[in-house]
Structure formats: structure tokens, C-alpha cells
Amino acid sequence: MKKYVLRRLLQLIPILLVITFLSFGMMRLAGSDAVLQKMENTGMVVSQEVIDSARAELGLDKPFLTQYFVWLGNLLRGDMGTSYISGQDVFSTFLSKLPATLLLTAVSILLTIVISIPLGVLAAVKQNRFTDYMIRTASFLGNSMPNFFVALLLMYFFSIRLKIFPVIATGISVQSVALPAITLAIAMSAKYLRQVRAAVLDELSKDYVVGARARGISFYTTLTKSVLRAALVTILTLLTLSIGSLLGGTAIVESIFLWDGVGKLAVDAINMRDYPMIQAYVMWMAIIYVCVNLITDLSYRALDPRIRLGGEKV
């Protein structure tokens, strides 16, 4: 078991190498660079000499491979470089955005679970009845609205009409996390409640449920003891995927609610071709995915002992 976990964590190294190299290469392929992007934003043209000296200062005049290995060398010495845009230390900038993202992820996942599991189970139990159709329609609605639309609607009703929440988030507080978390939870719940419904339906029609009912075990007991447990495998897979992408931040929601997390940081970095910052983000995402997957695989096993972990001898 320990060996397994260790091996999985060691896989992180090749993934990190591949992914940082890929993103380095692709950003170069994407054309433009930080110097030109800044020129576009300010709308001010600077002379070729100024452009060249700015590039040289950032090391952008060097060949691609040299740039990569310089970056990698610095990384191994614990230096992630400074941002091309703000001139701030990349690692500490990134770190300063993490708490906001972590909080938003936690709150929205929690909300999602609280909304989607009960509603999904209810829809499955009432399959093809009025309740089921109502719940599903609501989920379609949540699913077909882009999140900026949900965000603006919520902001309009809660901040301007009802004046419950402020438009501008001031620091990390209950008030300011509410609307972004609800926005994200609406979209995710719309998805998950349908997954929960499908998974529960699958289980409900299995022989053991039918058998249990025939033996006189109450429906409620079957549902909570066996069905939900079995359906949890699917739900867990999806949830971990979501946690992964949520931890990567959600640029649109973050910028609408002025939520100072890594999503906006990442998108700004990509748009501005802020290579060191992009590298930090890419590494963060890789670490998240490897860890989240590991945890998922371990919990599959805990939930369903029939599943064997790779490498374990039977």
C-alpha cells in the first residue's frame, strides 16, 4: 500500500517534466510575447530598440531550449522566477492567491453535494414522475446557462435588488464567498444531480435490490445501505474531476466577483504570455491531478473492495 502510494507520487516527476516542457513549447508556438502584449494593452508603440532591450532583459532573445533549461535549472534551485508582468516573485504571488481558491473550491463542492445528492436520489426514486421531470428540467436549465450569465443574474438580484451581498468582494468572508460559490454550485449541481440519478437508477434495478425488497428489507434501508454506497463510485469520479478543475480556478467567476484566486491569475498570465507564471500554474495543476487521482483510486478501493489497485498482487 505504502509502496503503491510512493510509486504514484514518483510518477509526478515525469509528468511535471513533460507538462512543463509542453507548455513552454506551446506558449512559444502561440506567438506574441509579454513585450508585445503589453504594447497592445497600453495602445502605445515603443521603438524596436526598446522592444529588443525589454526582450533581452526577460531572456526572450535566447533560443527556446536554453530558456527552458535555464528555467528548469532555477526551479531545481528553488527559484520559480519573477513575473514578466508584475515583476513580483512568482512563487509568493501564486501562494498568495491559493487561500481564496481553496475556500471557493471547498464551499462550492460542499454546496454541490448538499444540492445534488438529495435531489438526484429523489429524482431516481420518483423516476419519470412529475417530481423527476421538474428536477431534471431544473438541471437542464442550470446546464444550459453559461456561468457568466448565472453570475450576473445572481449579482443583479442579490446585490442590486435585495442588497444582501456586496458587488465587490472585500477580502475573504462569508458575504463575498456566497455568490461565487452559488454560481459554481448551480452549474455543478445541474450536472451531478443527473449523474446521481443515473447511478442510483442503475443500482435500483440490480438484482440485489430487487431481492432485498422481496425479502422485506425496507426500501429506505436498501437505498441508504447499499444503493448509495454503490453509486458513490461514479459520483466520486466526477467530483474529483471537478475538484481538480475548481482548484485550477475559474477565471470568469473570479473576475466577475473580484475573487482573487488562481484562475484569473492563470488566464491573465496566459493572455499576457507571462511564461514563468504559466509554468507555476501548470505545475500546480499537475500536482493537483496526480494527488486527486491517487486519492480517488484509494477511495474506490475503500468503497468497493472488489476493485484492486494496480500493482497489488491478488
Binding site: 442590486i160 456586496p166 465587490i168 466577483f257
Partner: peptide, 19 residues
Amino acid sequence: VRTISDGDTLTMALQSGEI
């Protein structure tokens, strides 16, 4: 001075009187 990069947020912040 608050930096509000999103135009719609800026609109609503002025409507709600926060700026």
C-alpha cells in the same frame, strides 16, 4: 481606487452604490 477589470461588475458596483 478599486481595480475592477470586469465591465459588468463595474456597472453593478456603481448601481449598488459601492463605488
